[in-house]
Design a protein around this nucleic acid. Structure first.
Lengths: 230, 230
DNA sequence: TATAGATAGAATACAGTGTATCGACATGAG
DNA sequence: CTCATGTCGATACACTGTATTCTATCTATA
């Protein structure tokens, strides 16, 4: 009679709590996207009836909010940023990387105010890089502008990624050669400027494009904060 | 026997087409948000069985795409913009206004590539304001940056609007006084920079904030396009 | 004209969804 | 031991997107 043939005790399910629920939901979303997250599936993954969840969560939207806050833990900077520029840039890039790890984040980003503790901590970290500044309205505008930018940019990047994946073609192939509908549209001659851009524009990788736009905005912010232009 | 007592002919339903379907869907969404749009309700509004729609649309997502393109008709500029700056600014503001008329647009914006004819026409209009420029990569980055910004900014604005509406409180009241959860969080002292900003920051109306951020970015773009700083 | 075939449309069906409600059971208090 | 309380599971409801199947109506041919 060893450990191995002795039957395990009737494994009473590990006690439920929000953390476990959110973790299960995140796992599901990572695997199959947001639409793979259903309360029934989350519950199943925890060996629990669907209704149990309502003891910890009052609606599915709330679960989504919790998921968003959960990944904000990954967005927290590890060390104090050197200056405000580094803080804003880091915030943007870490959010982007989190969204590439959890693509469903792109669907939720900006969809509702993010007020969870981790999200607040992220804001705090970013803002604290502006400590000592008195022009706090400019600071506020700066943070808002940058986060509007990266929200939009990340959404677009993920959207493009999915579209690309759906056709199984590389972006280059898709845009230039085959993508039959778009090619046809551009060939109508109704969109000359657009056609020229698609045809002659060099396409840069997503990260560079993200960074470039971000840096432009940071330059603008610097100007508004009264720093001398480079 | 007048027209009035003569029974109408058995009103055979107006012939179905995409336009009518999309219009019905948009109407539903305007009234009750995106979640009020179900194929059954759209069909019902057209006095038609749900399955009829599949002759014109192959999936619900496709319907959403069509809806997005439909409102892009409202985003088309009425007259040719004076210069690129006016073009970009106009594009942003018209998109914002469209999203305030059709809040559900905020949920869809940036969620998938917008390639419908109207969306393409909007891009074309914007791009054509750069006609004659040879630095087309810079132009591309400029357009992308600006549209990333307004996508994100619009989403946040609508999200805030809804949150505000949900509590029935004015933004001011909500942020400062009652919003019990947030106040409690800020009172923990864990978010001093954030607390200070919420407390001391003057809150400007959404439109001004949108415009300000946009203008900053346009300034940055101008710099990159090699125009002298103001 | 009669009949076969094609086709458009409705009805039904299925596998899921979020969530309200209700009933059993366990646990703690008197 | 009894009773109250409160937790948890099962059941139920109204709805979703979409596949399939059936039934009329129209077309074309014999």
């Amino acid at each position: 009679m060893t450990v191995w043939d002795r039957p395990e005790p009737p494994t009473r399910p590990a006690p439920l709590d929000r953390e476990r629920i959110v973790a299960a939901a995140v796992a599901l979303a990572d695997e199959g996207g947001l639409e793979a997250v259903s309360l029934r599936k989350v519950a199943a993954r925890l060996d629990v009836g669907p209704m149990r969840l309502y003891g910890y969560i009052s609606t599915k939207e709330e679960l989504f909010d919790l998921m968003v806050d959960e990944v904000h833990a990954e967005i927290l900077p590890e060390e104090r940023p050197g200056d405000w520029r580094e803080a804003l840039r880091g915030h943007a890039h870490r959010t982007r990387r989190a969204a590439l790890r959890h693509e469903w984040l792109a669907d939720l980003l900006g969809g509702r105010p993010a007020l969870g503790p981790n999200a607040l901590a992220v804001s705090e970290a970013t803002l604290s890089a502006f400590d000592g500044r008195t022009d706090i309205d400019v600071v506020m505008r700066a943070v808002e502008t940058v986060s509007a930018y990266f929200t939009g940019a990340i959404r677009r990047e993920v959207a493009d990624l999915r579209a690309e994946r759906a056709t199984g073609l590389s972006k280059d192939e898709w845009q230039r050669a085959s993508g039959p509908y778009l090619t046809r549209m551009l060939d109508t001659g109704r969109f000359p400027a657009l056609a020229r851009l698609v045809h002659d524009g060099t396409d840069v990788d997503a990260e560079t494009s993200f960074s470039t736009g971000l840096d432009w905005i940071l330059d603008a912010v610097a100007a508004k904060l009264g720093e001398p232009p480079v």
